[in-house]
Each structure stands twice: as structure tokens, then as C-alpha cells.
Design a protein around this nucleic acid. Structure first.
Lengths: 210, 210
DNA sequence: CCATGCGTTGGACCAAAGGCCAATTCGCAA
DNA sequence: TTGCGAATTGGCCTTTGGTCCAACGCATGG
């Protein structure tokens, strides 16, 4: 568990802004990394790391909004704080509707920015935690053989072993064995725990009929 | 199951705007109800109904943003579409961060507004559905006696009846009876279903120790 | 050809869950 | 006082779940 501290990525094509922001964030005790373009950011950031992005809108190449689209599509969990000098209402609304954490206008107060960053860090932390839990569940799920997954899906509907057997065209004994292996591989000791994991990870139970 | 069609509430202190919006929405086949102030809206809207609100920002008395705060606090599920002639970025961002469905500026295109309203209706529909499910679960939960609720919480941890009995200072037989009543009142036929309901409704299982 | 692993199945056995009937105690309300 | 619902407990029986030992068929790779 490498619990690295979150990084505040700064993406702005204006060197003086980058420098000022970097200095401000570093002085506040944050890890800050600056990029001069969306492309440079995409090439240099750590998709698995934690943190947030302080992003300018108007930039050559990929604009801030376009970078947001790329990250959303890529299912990134880095919150984006837009920071622009020429923001208009439609743009800010669009950005927020696509999940931006905040939308600030230059010049921005130190406190305002730092508050936004800390909030973004917190959002990122919670998101990552939720995602990690689901990822762990899915990791275990992959350990199950196809047959075991089928049995699990039927069990989650509340079927009895014999009913699962009938649905799968096998006998109760076999279901028992699969069931035991499912419980073992999913690392749960009760049906209640299994159902909870399944609910969290979005595992749909089999249709009652089939 | 009164499946009434959603209502588009219009809240604006400008009579001409109200009239124009009402005509526009009605012409589009929507049920529209207009109010000239936040207070009038609060007094006249149906908290249990479905729909959305087209809300002006600048109004005497409670402003649009203040009305939003009231509704958020009241846990309303009516999406708010702000519609203002003097919107600025900080205001729109604040509104969006508090959950506004959209933030449009006058003059607004017919298509733009209608699209926003339909999107808001859909959001409202999904929200209401999710809320209705949880409400139904909680309704059943209230049918449980305190003891039965305790037993349920322990069962949800995966404990055996005898372990639940030990935790509650009683005997296995009693737990069995309570358990059966829990299953009956919650209208589930398996532990898996019960666990699913509990997970959805945010019912926390008892701590394993106690 | 054979070893290895996976999926499958059988048998035996014990623990646990669920259902049914009956009974007691307690507190609160008619 | 009487009655009722909640909580509790007992006994008895059936069904189900969980586990151990054992075995067979099949594909994959050595």
C-alpha cells in the first residue's frame, strides 16, 4: 500500500501562470507538477496516482474542455478544477455538467484555490477508495471459473442448491462443490457477505427462471 | 399508482416571462404551472409530485439560489433549471455544485429549454424511482419490532443463529422465530434478497463483536 | 503416453435452518 | 381485571447447507 500523497497537476500554457501556481501550491505543502499543454499532461501524468488537475481552458492544441472529455472517456478519477481568465456561463455549466470539481476565474485568491484543491483531493480519495473496493471484488471474480460464476449468480437470486442444479442441468452435489469454491475464492464466509459484495460490484443475479 | 405526468414549474417575477414560458411549455405538450415568487412556489407546489423547476435567479424575496437552498435542505427531488438574464460564472458554478440540473441564460432558445426540461424530467424520474424503492424498504423496516431489527442486523453480518443468540443474550430458538418474522415482514424469501435490500437502503449490519 | 489441473459426481455425516404446535412472561390499553 | 401484542422458550421433525474422502472424464502440455 504505497500511500503516496496526492499530486496537484497544473496544466496551463502560460509559463508565468504555471510558475506562480507551482510556487503557491508547493509553498502550501502540496506536491505540484506543471505541464504546458494537455498533450504534455497526458504523456506525463500518472493515471494510477491520486490528486487533481488545475486546468486552463484556452490552450493551443487540446483545450481544457477537450482534455476533460478525454479524461472522462478514459474513466479517469482525477477531479478537474478549471481555472480560466475568460470564462463564460455556458462554458462553466458545460464543464460542471461533465463532472468538473470546480470552475474558478483568474485572478483567483490563494485561499479559494487551495480550498478547491483540498476539496478535490477529498473527492478523489473517496472515489479511489470506492473504485478500489470494486476492483478488488472484480479481481476475485476473475478467479472463478465460468461454471462457478454461473452458480454464484443463481445463488444470489436466493435459489436452493437443488434449484440451481435444475437450472444448470446438473445435480445438487455439484452445485454444493461450486458453491463452496465460490465462497472461498470470494473470501466470504456467509451468503450475506457475498450478496453485499455482489450488490456493490454491480453483479446482477441470474434471472429467476433460467 | 397515480402515474401523473410531470409538471414544469415556472418561477419568475416577470409576468411577461412567465406568460411566454407558460405558453411555450404548454404548446410543447407539457403541464406547466407558473409562480411569481419563491414563496408562492413553496406554498403552491406539490412536494410529492414529479417534474422540474424553471427558476429565475433575481427575484424579490427569496432569490432563486435561496429557493434552491431551501429545496435542497428539504430534500426535494425536483431538478432545478436556472434561467437568468444576468448570470455570471461564480453564480452558475455555485448553482451547479448544489445540484442544479442546468443553468441557462436569457434569451433562451425553445429547443434548448425544452431539451433541458426533458432531461430534468428524466433525472427526476430516475431519482424518484430510486427513492421510492428505498422508501418501500424503510416502510417494511418499520414493521419490524426493535428486537427483530436487532436480529436482522446480526443476521446480515453472516452470523449463525446460535451466534446471534449469544450476542443478544438469548437462545437459538428465539432467534429462529425472530428471523422468520423478519423474512416475512421484509417480504423476502432468502438471505440473499434480504442482504440486497439492506445494502440498497443503507442498513448497516451489526458490528461482528457485539 | 502420461502427469497435472479442472470440472464433475457420489456417499456419508453433521450442523444449521425452517416449519408447526404449544406455552410463559410482561407491559400496556380497554 | 381482562385482553392483546411483543418477546421469549421448548420440543419435534424435515429440509438444506457444509465438509471430508473418493473417483471419473477431459484437455493441455511434457
Amino acid at each position: 500500500m504505497s500511500q503516496e500523497s496526492p499530486i496537484a497537476y497544473v496544466v496551463d500554457d502560460d509559463a508565468s501562470v504555471r510558475k506562480a501556481l507551482h510556487r503557491l501550491l508547493t509553498a502550501a505543502g502540496l506536491r505540484a507538477v506543471a505541464f504546458d499543454s494537455s498533450r504534455a499532461f497526458l504523456d506525463g501524468y500518472d493515471p494510477a496516482g491520486s490528486g487533481c488537475i488545475v486546468l486552463d481552458i484556452h490552450m493551443p492544441g487540446l483545450s481544457g474542455l477537450e482534455l476533460q472529455d478525454v479524461l472522462v472517456t478514459a474513466d479517469s478519477d482525477l477531479p478537474i478544477i478549471f481555472l480560466t481568465g475568460y470564462g463564460d456561463v455556458p462554458t462553466s455549466v458545460r464543464a460542471m455538467k461533465r463532472g468538473a470539481a470546480d470552475f474558478l476565474t483568474k485572478p483567483v485568491g490563494e485561499t479559494e484555490l487551495l480550498t478547491a484543491i483540498h476539496a478535490a483531493f477529498e473527492r478523489n480519495r473517496q472515489w479511489r477508495q470506492a473504485r478500489a473496493e470494486v476492483a478488488e471484488i472484480r479481481r476475485r471474480l476473475k478467479l472463478l471459473t465460468p461454471r462457478e460464476q454461473e452458480v454464484m449468480r443463481h445463488i444470489l437470486t436466493g435459489k436452493l442448491n437443488k434449484q440451481v442444479a435444475a437450472a444448470l442441468g446438473t445435480v445438487e452435489k455439484t452445485v454444493k462443490v461450486h458453491r463452496a469454491r465460490v465462497m472461498g475464492k470470494m473470501q466470504v464466509r456467509s451468503l450475506a457477505e457475498l450478496a453485499r459484495l455482489a450488490e456493490r460490484a454491480g453483479i446482477e443475479p441470474a434471472s429467476p427462471g433460467e
